[in-house]
Design a binder for these strands. Structure first.
Lengths: 236, 236
DNA sequence: GAAGCAACTATCTTCGAAAATCCAACCTGT
DNA sequence: ACAGGTTGGATTTTCGAAGATAGTTGCTTC
């Protein structure tokens, strides 16, 4: 397990220490820094994140209902396990929610949404144009830009709850994706697919955008599943 | 606001204080003891739940991603607001999830599931047979039995994530239901509807069970919406 | 009177010490 | 050898004191 821990964001929009710790901890779980099933000891976390025990418990309690960590009484917190079966379960729901959300988003989106989408795509494309080497070094930027792009696609969906659930599932899918990529070369750039989805959305072809997005996600899941051996539980 | 606070459950399966506080706090929010939008001051909570500040923060942090409380930095926690618009949003998704979950549950349920369902219905019916007076006094038992019955219906659904999301939405729907009933007579007993759903499930008529359950929930939501005036935000 | 400022109060946020719990290693008697 | 019990160290859980922040009141100045 690499010793590097997510640092406090320079932008630091998190006014509360607990929220800063929360987002760093979540990022470190999603990108596989903490392996699935790994115990999260307070002594370690305290050093890594320079936060008190109470603050750490607060962040971990937040991650509990999100399903990213688990708690057994008096034995502390563990990173949630992963499995091929759960990936299939999460993915199926996730794809469906994304499709529904983008369809509604395209139908309801106004100018501001369209502008936000074009901007988000631009930022993502800019990073993807960098050299392979540089992309590797700034991979967390790519992750953020990719996330922002997918969020921009569905941002105009009027159902706050659909967006909320979509976000939960997106997190879990991202974890599977990042873990599966952890020890192998970066997957092929998906820029063409992203571009096609953006075009369909801007052209207000809701159903088409939904279909393209669903296909994009289906393929990603299949790629991850093809590298599924590493999903077997980690040693205690 | 009534001064009565949920007491530690006699069964007390919660080994951790934080989990006990969590479930009591959640119950008190769901049944409207804490009004939507109300601030949750630590000094009060500390007295009411006889727990330390850290423990209370831990419980509230857990309720944050569930959407039952909100946090603004350095101003503390508030009970999440409610609105007719959100009720419609939550209800539409909830009904859909319930339907899908029960269809899958009926298709996959084995003997143990069937037995559990029959038992849960029996317990619910038993409480509903009590006199109006006694039902009122033991209303929290009815709430628990009702929740258990609905959970038993979908328990055999193989998608853990569908069940998870269903549970989240059930909580929110229950809050709307209990708040709307708070200051008016108990709604008409739904025993006949529950019985019909149970029968369809036991008879393995999956689609029928789904349709009956959806109709049951739709009607409940409509009843709540008809009494919507009280959903306007509470005074600060 | 309005705006700016300062002191004061109420409340939240953070932290680590102390109590409780678990687990592994070590006895002890059969 | 082994079941059962005991001790000690590692770890979690709980708690409230101390620091930080927001909101309020009252004073001063223009």
């Amino acid at each position: 397990m690499p010793p590097r821990i997510r640092q406090t964001a320079a932008e630091a929009d998190a006014v509360l220490v607990s929220q800063d710790v929360l987002s760093r901890l979540k990022g470190d779980i999603l990108d596989g820094h903490f392996a699935p099933g790994a115990r999260l000891r307070f002594a370690d976390l305290q050093k890594s994140y320079s936060a008190g025990i109470g603050t750490l418990r607060e962040a971990l309690s937040h991650l509990l209902p999100e399903g990213l960590v688990e708690l057994d009484a008096n034995r502390g917190f563990r990173v949630a396990a992963i499995s091929a079966a759960e990936l299939r379960d999460v993915s199926a729901l996730h794809i469906e929610f994304e499709r529904r959300a983008i369809v509604e988003s395209v139908r309801h989106g106004e100018d501001a949404w369209e502008a936000g989408l074009v901007l988000a795509f631009h930022r993502l494309a800019k990073i993807e144009r960098l050299s392979r080497e540089e992309r590797k070094q700034r991979s967390s930027e790519w992750v953020a830009a990719h996330r922002d792009f997918h969020r921009a696609l569905v941002a105009a969906c009027p159902s706050r709850w659909l967006l909320r659930l979509r976000a939960q599932l997106y997190d879990h899918m991202e974890r599977y994706r990042l873990i599966s990529q952890r020890h192998r070369p970066l997957g092929p750039a998906k820029r063409a697919e992203h571009e096609a989805i953006r075009d369909a959305a801007v052209a207000r072809k809701a159903e088409l955008a939904g279909e393209l997005l669903a296909a994009h996600l289906r393929e990603t899941t299949e790629t991850v599943l093809r590298h599924a051996p590493q999903f077997m539980p980690a040693p205690p």
